[in-house]
Amino acid sequence: MKEKKINLITLFLITISSFLLIYILIYILNYYSNNGILLSYPSEFNYQNKLLTPNEIGDSIGGILNPIIGFTAAILTFLAFYMQYEANKDQRSIYFKNIRREDNDKVEEHRVNLRIFKNLVISMLDFYNSSGESIKKFVDEEIQSPLSMNIPKFTTNNSYEIFKSLDFKQIYASVVYNFKNSEDDWEEEFIEVLVILDFYEKLIADIKENFKIQNQKKYSLIAEVGDNINLQMNDIFPNDIVNNLDGLIDYMAIIYNKNPDNTSVIPDAEFSFPDINKLYSIFFPKFITALLAEYRKNDENQNEYKRFLDIFNHYYKKLGGEKAQAENYARDLSENYFLYFADNTNVNKILEFLAKIIYYERNMDNTDC
């Protein structure tokens, strides 16, 4: 409605000015034409039939047209100023529209930055929670079967790498903008959130690295013991002195899943690999005890019993040391789990800060950048 009104005013002024200019032009043409001034030297007579001079003719035309010309000039001057006024007003309108557009763009930029921040933090929290569950499951398996090759199933997550690549000046500016009307001491909470996220990322990285070292060491020792025991069995089974001792049937059942009649202990489809825990807890104690008993009562083959007794004692102690180390590792890992994963204090701090961001973000459209 306002633009239509301005157009009507401008159109009205132009119409009046055009009408007056046409009127002046027609008046001059008619005056000059009727008095033969256009094609010849001007001549005119007054009411006394006296020849007038050109100056008097000019005074006659000027006296009639000057007021009209002056009024027309005034309208045109006003029109010029009015159109300049309208142009300035349009420029101001465009300028403030651009300012508002920039403000809206800035608000949207803050929203996008905060959305990225929130989504990455939530993704990292999901990763930390799933890592905690994996650690808890691994600890339970490791304590129950310390000589098994238990492996924590850590999920992969690149959220922290993306998080570190963000422009934190922009993120911080968006957080500042979000809390500009808040009286909360949000800066300390924001820094604490960043510290917690960094701590958990490094904690999980350390756990993975330590597990890798522990797992490689355990695998090497078990492989070494397994290979050496297999070599010893190549001497034991053909040896009539020791091939009937207690524990060897258990060895066949544990390592090969076979009973004395060559039937399977459990269905072969269910047997994946030997249980070293049973080898340690069943075979070694029985076989070493049997060797020791024969060594004490049998003087004739005492050296043979002593040789095997030393060998199997050595590897039994090796497995025992690895078992103790695996249990200690599991207990230490369990402490970390209960301190940093089972306890939701740190996670709740992060969630509370995100909740504050969401709360104050609702007022973002009502504030100025």
Rank of each mutant, 00 (worst) to 15 (best):
F168Y: 14
N150M: 01
S148V: 05
M124W: 03
D332H: 06
M364Y: 00
S123R: 13
D206N: 15
S134K: 06
E133D: 14
N49W: 08
K89W: 09
R111K: 14
K217W: 07
S40D: 07
F12R: 02
M124D: 06
R296A: 11
D184A: 12
L114D: 01
N346H: 12
N234E: 13
Q48P: 00
F179G: 00
L76A: 06
V225A: 08
E361G: 14
G70R: 10
Y23L: 11
P260N: 05
K306V: 07
K106W: 06
E304D: 03
A290E: 02
Y251E: 01
K317L: 14
K136W: 08
Y360L: 08
F81H: 00
S220G: 02
S130T: 07
I24L: 04
K258E: 07
A173D: 15
F81Q: 02
A290S: 10
D167C: 08
D310S: 13
I69A: 06
I282R: 04
I9N: 01
N66M: 13
F19R: 02
K118C: 07
K169R: 13
E192C: 04
K164T: 12
D275F: 09
Q232C: 11
I26H: 06
E201R: 06
I254Q: 04
S134H: 04
E187Q: 13
R100P: 00
K217T: 11
Q325A: 12
S220K: 15
L197A: 06
N119R: 11
N178V: 07
I191Y: 08
Y251Q: 01
E102S: 10
I358K: 07
G62M: 11
I255T: 08
E3R: 10
E141Q: 09
F312S: 02
N259R: 06
Y295S: 07
N30L: 13
L38S: 06
F163Q: 02
N98F: 08
V347K: 15
L292P: 00
Y47I: 14
T72M: 12
R307F: 14
P42V: 03
Y31H: 05
L21C: 12
P260L: 04
I191F: 08
A326R: 01
I213E: 07
Q302W: 04
K297P: 00
